[in-house]
């Protein structure tokens, strides 16, 4: 099902954390940095760098959790919690 290549950043176990991001986006960069700072185990993917055939699948996946299909979308434990945008406090509370 999910064949998209994700980068894995090892760290503290806080559940399955997946960040859907764009390589060109400022808020995505800040979210990625925050995950690193928190030191939590997570996966991320730069959707804009995916080959065209994987792009559609990736966006459908994002839309499943966040109907706006916007970035960054942070998915915690298969969608138990979804944080859209760089919501620093929310992310710290959820993962800190």
């Amino acid at each position: 099902m999910n064949q998209m290549k994700m980068e894995h950043v090892p760290g503290k176990a806080r559940g399955k954390i997946t960040l859907y991001a764009l390589s060109t986006c400022g808020w995505c960069a800040k979210t990625k940095e925050l995950l690193r700072e928190l030191g939590v185990d997570h996966f991320y993917v730069f959707v804009d760098l995916l080959p065209p055939e994987e792009l559609e699948e990736a966006i459908r996946e994002v839309e499943k959790f966040n109907p706006a299909g916007s970035f960054p979308t942070l998915v915690i434990n298969e969608g138990t919690r979804v944080i859209v945008g760089f919501r620093e406090q929310e992310i710290r509370e959820a993962l800190g």
Binding site: T24, C25, G26, C28, D48, L55
Partner: peptide, 28 residues
């Protein structure tokens, strides 16, 4: 620093797609 990085994103998108689409939104 934040702004220059977004401008970099605009240039990347211009090279990729032929127009400077929003660096914070996905383009097809």
């Amino acid at each position: 620093a934040f702004t220059v990085n977004l401008v970099r994103g605009l240039l990347v998108n211009e090279q990729r797609y032929g127009y400077p689409s929003c660096p914070c939104r996905i383009s097809f």
